[in-house]
Deep mutational scan, measured.
Amino acid sequence: LKTAGVNTTDKEMEVLHLRNVSFEDAGEYTCLAGNSIGLSHHSAWLTVLEALEERPAVMTSPLYLEIIIYCTGAFLISCMVGSVIVYKMKSGTKKSDFHSQMAVHKLAKSIPLRRQVTVSADSSASMNSGVLLVRPSRLSSSGTPMLAGVSEYELPEDPRWELPRDRLVLGKPLGEGCFGQVVLAEAIGLDKDKPNRVTKVAVKMLKSDATEKDLSDLISEMEMMKMIGKHKNIINLLGACTQDGPLYVIVEYASKGNLREYLQARRPPGLEYCYNPSHNPEEQLSSKDLVSCAYQVARGMEYLASKKCIHRDLAARNVLVTEDNVMKIADFGLARDIHHIDYYKKTTNGRLPVKWMAPEALFDRIYTHQSDVWSFGVLLWEIFTLGGSPYPGVPVEELFKLLKEGHRMDKPSNCTNELYMMMRDCWHAVPSQRPTFKQLVEDLDRIVALTSNQEYLDLSMPLDQYSPSFPDTRSSTCSSGEDSVFSHEPLPEEPCLPRHPAQLANGGLKRR
């Protein structure tokens, strides 16, 4: 031991701790050491302190810390799992109470259905409401065949629209698609105040090879029609059969078919879209009749726009005509997947739907009320060519290029400059510069009032120099000039209409 001194630092001082000593042992101690050379000694003081209470040693090893962490984590996880189980049990009790009230408590799974309603004014964004509309049932219905791709499903009954099956008599087919079909039928007692009145209706139903998605689409269309409500110039929902059998959606019946066929059937002799010497046209149409058709469609679209509904496929083929020549817009409630459109795929009647699409819908897939206005301009062109085919002879690839360059279709022969300028306004490259349906209704209403009933179509000018029955994407082998976009001569082996020498072909294109 070194004694503290003047020249001794703290580091040089050493402390020796002795245990089991008493206060009597306190004092100075000297350590002597010697050898043959000499003797040396050092002294140190022993200080006795009071004994401290002994405390248990605390484990601070890493293993002990890990044990604490794992135990704490396990406890927290157990609490979370327990909370989830309690929540599930409570929510399951509430669901079972709800389904027992709906009398569908025996169901095993559900079809996820979404009601898609486009509400954005400047995009294709949609509001999806995840309302459960249908659930599968283990119960089988008697007297009705089961669908191959869709098991029997039981829908919640809506008393406002439900019609008993025994009050619906199915008739002949009116048309069909890939998985759905429409048949003519007679409904008894659609009007609650007149329970014995028989009404001719159209009934939409699924085919035998339909899938769950097809069922989902049909129900979504029905729900959309319920929500949009009734208007004179749209196909209205009349009722539905949802209980004890396949789903039947009952809508208004339009006896004169779609507008395109309606116009073609009323072309003057010699100007029909397909040469037929025995062709006997229906009643002749006046200019006022054509303007009235456009006015009614505009009114229907104005109503749909007021309900925040974007059609996305407005064309003469999707406008139906009733016995009283009332125009009714159809298929506005269809669920369309705008992100998976095949631009080169034709519709069932051979038309390319892209020829009715606005550039922003075609290139950027942006659907708005103003893109519907563009389609309405093409529909106007169809009306005043009596069912002509837009951009005849123009392949899709060429159409993309022409639209980007600002080309537009030429004025039809039997169309006034004012109406043609309306078409051109609908085809404005900037969507915000196109008229609204409200403005179109006002303009067409004024034109109808000024147009005489006696103004019949000028038969001295050809209505349509093209054969719409030909595929639109076909290139002409005998077109006049180098560019078949601006002219389209008859093919030698097929009868077509004579070309008027002083008139540019109706399907020609102009640059805006």
Rank of each mutant, 00 (worst) to 15 (best):
K328Q: 13
K401Q: 14
R267W: 00
L238V: 11
R197C: 05
I250M: 07
N276I: 06
K404E: 10
R197L: 05
G177R: 06
N453H: 06
S306F: 11
V169A: 10
A202V: 03
A305V: 15
A315G: 00
G177A: 02
S460T: 04
G177D: 02
L419M: 11
N280H: 06
D289Y: 04
E282V: 06
I228N: 15
E252G: 15
L457R: 12
D214V: 14
S413N: 06
M227T: 12
K192Q: 11
P412S: 00
S389A: 06
P392H: 00
K194R: 11
F384Y: 15
T451S: 08
K226R: 10
Q243K: 07
R266G: 12
R408L: 01
I366S: 03
K401T: 13
A361T: 04
S208P: 08
D425E: 04
L403V: 13
P390L: 07
F332I: 01
D331N: 02
S292A: 08
L399P: 14
E482Q: 13
L285V: 12
I341S: 14
L320R: 00
L170S: 03
L304Q: 01
V321G: 02
C241R: 15
L380P: 14
V321A: 11
T436N: 11
E382A: 01
G350S: 05
D313V: 01
L237P: 13
G180R: 04
T368I: 03
L304M: 15
D324Y: 10
D458N: 07
V394L: 11
N258I: 00
V373G: 01
Y420C: 00
K438Q: 11
W356L: 02
A358S: 02
Y275S: 15
G257D: 09
L174R: 03
S476F: 10
I250F: 04
F179L: 03
D313G: 02
S413I: 09
S278N: 08
A187T: 14
D214Y: 08
V169D: 06
G388C: 02
Y253N: 08
K345T: 03
S467T: 13
I234N: 13
Y344N: 01
P431L: 00
E418K: 13
L386M: 05
P281Q: 09
T347K: 14
L450W: 05
C309R: 02
Y275C: 09
I383V: 04
Y262C: 04
E302D: 15
P471S: 04
N276Y: 07
A265S: 04
V326M: 08
M422R: 08
K404Q: 07
Y391S: 03
G171A: 12
D445E: 08
F179S: 03
T385S: 09
E283Q: 15
A254P: 00
E442K: 13
P392T: 12
H311Q: 00
A358G: 04
D166G: 07
S208L: 04
D458G: 11
A294G: 05
E323K: 07
M222I: 14
S467F: 04
F437L: 01
Q454E: 09
L174Q: 01
T199P: 09
L238R: 11
Y295N: 12
V291A: 12
I338S: 06
C426G: 00
K204E: 03
E323V: 13
D214N: 05
S480A: 14
L290Q: 08
E176V: 08
T451P: 14
N325H: 05
T199I: 13
D337G: 12
Y456D: 12
P359S: 01
K192T: 15
I329T: 02
I250T: 09
Y391F: 15
I188L: 11
G350R: 03
A210T: 07
P269T: 14
P353R: 02
D445H: 14
D166A: 15
V319L: 01
T348S: 10
R474G: 09
S452C: 09
N318H: 00
E283A: 05
Q296E: 13
Q433P: 00
R197S: 04
L170I: 09
H339R: 13
G270W: 09
M461T: 11
I383S: 05
V430E: 09
V169I: 13
R446L: 03
S371N: 15
E382D: 04
M224K: 01
H407D: 00
D425H: 12
L379H: 11
Y420S: 06
P395S: 03
